[in-house]
Every structure is written in structure tokens, then in C-alpha cells.
Amino acid sequence: MKYFAGIDVGSLTAKAVVVDENNRILGYHVMPIGQDSFAAGMSAYQQVLNKAGLKREDVLSIVSTGYSRKRFTEATMQKTEISCHAKGVSVIFPGVTTLIDVGGQDSKAMKLGKNGKVLDFAMNDKCAAGTGRFVEVMAHALNLSLDGLSDAALSFKNELSLSSTCTVFGESEVVSLLSQGHTVADIAWAIIKSIADRIVALAKRVGIGQDVAMSGGMAKNRALVARLEDRIGFDILVPDEPQIIGALGAALIAKEEK
């Protein structure tokens, strides 16, 4: 049996996946980056090998992806997270035509063809608006965890809006809304609406098809997925482990390229 690995060294977390020649996932691992992206990537790789009961020499090829992909020097090849997420999601949800990937520090929308072929893509600008970082900062302002913010948002009673999409000004606005006596749930929903609107605008740049999937850490946020579904008018397919889709795609590309 031949084995292939994909390592996604993102801005906040490192993800590793090992697959066999039948595209079967033998193991995956997700861990925080900390201060050394190479060490985190290597550690995630070693952990996934342990889980799969493999040694390094068993792995025929490794593809790295994510912002620190070039720092992971163990890789046979580097691919962008755009190609890797597209490939990964195409195996889990064949037929998906639009993929939204919202990670820690960027967000992307992809228009997909057959077998995860990227036909077009759009990325957010360099600021944190429309990314997981935006939600993280806002959750901190509300003294909530990321899951807590999602749960709170789903129990909102009154519609509020954040006028600013800027993370810095948005945080000030959240503090201001708290001081005006608005509930945490209503403010949390306003935060979710704000980021969702940015993501929809991004996705419209490549065109939104009927078969939409979402990957990246923010796909775990149920409130965000619900708001996005409401805005685009279609259900969104979310993998069981949306964070590992990039690493999975990288492993699949490693197999194809071999």
C-alpha cells in the first residue's frame, strides 16, 4: 500500500492528513501553530503518522499548503490552499460548484469544475474583515469563546447591525452597543451578520452556484453557516472536519502528482 501526506500550515493552526492510494483517510491531526510554524507542521505530521501507525519512510510524497507552506521543507511540493481546499472538498462532496473557505486570517471563495478544478477564485483584502480573526476579536470583546459566540448569536431576539466592517472600529462598536444595554445575544448576531455579508460579497465575485460547501475553521460556527444559507438561499454542505480539508486536498494532490 502507498501512503501520501498533506500538511496545511495556516496562520493559526497546523493540520496534517495521511491518505492511502484509495483516498482513504488514515488519520488527521490539528494543532495550534504557536511561534514556530515549521515545528508545528512537523509536530502535526509526526502526530498523524503515529495515529496512522506509519513511519516517515512509508510516505511516498508530501504536499504542503497554507501561508507557511514554504517553511515546511519536508514537503515534496507546495500548493496554495485554494487548490488544496478545492481538491479536498471535491472528494467529500463531489459536484460542489462553489466553495467558501473562511480561515483564521483570510477568506476565499472558489468556483469549481469537475474533480475540484478551480475555475475562478477570490480572496479577501489584506485586512482582517471577513475572516475568523474578526470573529475572534469580537468574541473577546464580549468575553465569549468562539463556540459561545455562535450559540449566543443563535438565540438573538432583536436585529442589530454593526456599521463598521473594520475589526478595530467593529470592536469599539461592540463595546458601545454593550454600554447602550443591548444583549450579548443580539450583539453576537450582529457580528455574525457583519462577517457573513462580507463573505457573501466575496463569493458573488466568482458567482454562487446551487451546490455550495464551506471549509476552514469558521465552518464550525453554526450561526455563521445559518446566516450564510439565509443570504445565499441554498443549503451549505459542511464536512465533519472542515479544518482539515486543505490538508486532505494536499494529500490527494500528493497522490495524483506521484
Binding site: T80, E81, I82, S83, D106, V118, D120
Partner: peptide, 29 residues
Amino acid sequence: TSFEVELQMASFEGIKTRLQAFKELMEVQ
């Protein structure tokens, strides 16, 4: 594809990802 820059930018990592993704897209198109 397109990207937006400011002249005093010192880090181009985000743009590099766009450029590499565009290269990968062209390779299949």
C-alpha cells in the same frame, strides 16, 4: 485575476498566494 497594493507595503505574502493560485489555475485552464 487582480491584486491591490500600496507602494510602502513590505510584506507580499497574501499577494504571493494569489499569484501562485493563479498559476495553478492557469495550469489546468
